[in-house]
Design a protein around this nucleic acid. Structure first.
Lengths: 342, 342
DNA sequence: GACAAAATGTGAAACGATAAACTGAACCGT
DNA sequence: ACGGTTCAGTTTATCGTTTCACATTTTGTC
């Protein structure tokens, strides 16, 4: 941009460089570089250099390293939408797991927008992240394929169709959805509204497909309603659905965040859960057992997912190419928010 | 680390560089650099260069820029603990706000550890973030002062004592705590346990000090109990406190996350809230109104905090030095989890 | 039309670290 | 005593971009 000259940045902080160490030890820069990593040089030199480095409080400059082309020790974490409580939990778990491997996290939030998602991934690549962990929002396009070919990528809870990934943590959506629908069916529900994430024209979301399939099998009448993520986003829609005269007897939300908004809506309208309407969530956020009423939801082990995702990536970076796919099995946590039709 | 040779990284993806543009336009690298930013060069040249750049899909390499010393467009976000639900919310809000200013987020989680916090801040500085937004865990040490002097820093919900920051989003802890204690006092509570974040020897946390002060004023008997963050972390402690024979009549948790754990504990022990014991939280997570019973808590506007924090930083980076401090006023949200002593 | 002042462009030196290729030694077995 | 390995270093080039100093043109003014 044009823009007037910006203020000089705060004094650029003169951190000690490899060169300073070189001068103070009388060695060449290269020698120091090797010694710091404990390679090649004689034990005595290594000792001397590392002592000096410690003395100066030297930390290798990750930026210079990145430019040169080595590892950066940073992993890009791209989540579909941080407005979703469960994805916040997932992001946290992955971040923590990465850190336990000494890796840093560059976090990006696609905010439910597939196009944005790709742009962010490219930006992360430009930042020279060593790898990418993606909880995808939409299906992959051509650029994703190319990107993933260059950058080790692990998907969590979603696919990047066509792109070659180094690891995949899949959630068994079919079973998860099936359990919910069977549960509701067993309770006598027949007209069910399914609130799904509204995402720009992404018709083939696995969970939605699973809903259609399973609904057909059970003979249920499921209407899929696209819905904004987040508490505040889903409430208005929930109010609309709940106010219909042919109100469904159950609402199945494809995310707990959405379910919370619906619970809120029920409360506002004075509807009793589960007497007047049953609510089921998806993903089982830790707080779902504490809300009122406790929310029936489909649980996937976040810790396991995070551990696997990071493990896949770390293994790949270490040159091992072991198992690269895991399917996380769902557990239906039946709580008080779902009950028989009355 | 010795370590065997690592596998060659996935093909390093040949992104177009400034040099390529130079060659294809017959200009010098320097000329292209200027033209891309619309400086110096003639209008015709600028046009030509930018057209070529667009054609090649050129994106300036943020790493090279960072090394050279310019802006990186990335801001470090350092939170005290992402295990805390409210801080997840805060982090999300700040991240979103940064993005709306075209800035990227490098997220780091101190995990409740002040020493770690400093190390991470240094790492972020080494990554050449343009600025730092910190939700501090502990008081600042000497290195913080130095760091903040070099790197524009904004604090949110906490101070870095002694360090010169470019902006500060303060929460009025004294008032917040005061309102809670007055509320409980009015309900007849006299013996109150205060669950605070357990943080390595940080005796002078503002909120804790506020508790002592206000308790003294009201003549309340407040015992401050250090407690782990997070749902699972606080539950065991909650069980201990709740099982005492001289159980307090109210528990004031200095974070909603802790309060959730306590609610959970109460449920396990069959204690009724608020009949048997009153629970009050702090920070007012969006879900606090949905838990059972709805949690009385102290609300600070997260959006306002995020907007201010990012605004301060952006203004500073733009060379303006306007208002640099805001105090967010608390609102006590009285809900069903607190009631009169019975 | 002369001379200063802009305007437009170029080359080289950074920024900090690393890898490849090269230089002397010391050391090896025969 | 002779080639051949290792060892322990050093030189040099490189990653992609920006900026300083300088060279060349164009423009403006009297």
């Amino acid at each position: 941009m044009g823009g007037a000259t910006l203020t000089p940045m705060a004094t650029p902080a003169k951190r000690p460089t490899i060169r300073q160490i070189a001068e103070e030890t009388g060695l060449s820069v290269t020698a120091v570089s090797y010694a710091l990593r404990g390679e090649r040089m004689s034990a005595a030199t290594i000792e001397r250099v590392q002592a000096k480095a410690a003395e100066l409080g030297y930390i290798a400059d990750p930026v210079a390293r990145a430019l040169r082309g080595g590892r950066t020790g940073t992993v890009g974490l791209l989540v579909g939408s941080l407005a979703d409580f469960w994805q916040q939990t997932l992001a946290h778990a992955i971040q923590r797991e990465l850190r336990s491997h000494g890796l840093h996290t560059l976090l990006a939030d696609a905010d439910g927008n597939p196009a944005e998602e790709l742009a962010l991934a490219q930006r992360l690549a430009a930042q020279r992240v060593d790898g990418l962990i993606v909880a995808p929002v939409g299906p992959a396009g051509g650029s994703w394929v190319e990107l993933a070919a260059h950058l080790p990528t692990v998907t969590v809870a979603g696919q990047l169709a066509g792109a070659e990934v180094v690891g995949e943590v899949a959630f068994d959506q079919t079973t998860g959805v099936g359990e919910v629908l069977r549960h509701l069916h067993a309770l006598g529900h027949e007209r069910i509204a399914v609130l799904s994430w509204a995402v720009g024209a992404s018709p083939d979301r696995p969970s939605e497909r699973a809903v259609s399939e399973q609904a057909a099998i059970l003979g249920l009448q499921c209407e899929i309603v696209p819905c904004a993520y987040s508490l505040d986003g889903s409430r208005p829609l929930a109010l609309e659905v709940l106010s219909r005269e042919d109100r469904p007897t159950a609402i199945f939300c494809l995310s707990d965040s959405i379910a919370y908004g619906v619970l809120h809506g029920c409360r506002e309208l004075g509807l009793r859960v589960p007497e007047d309407i049953s609510i089921v969530g998806f993903d089982d956020h830790p707080l779902s057992r504490l809300v009122d009423p406790p929310l029936t939801s489909v649980n996937w082990s976040v810790d396991r997912a995070a551990r696997s995702a990071v493990g896949f990536l770390v293994d790949h970076l270490a040159g091992q190419a072991d198992e690269r796919r895991i399917v996380i099995a769902p557990t239906l946590a039946v709580r008080a928010s779902s009950g028989p039709v009355t």
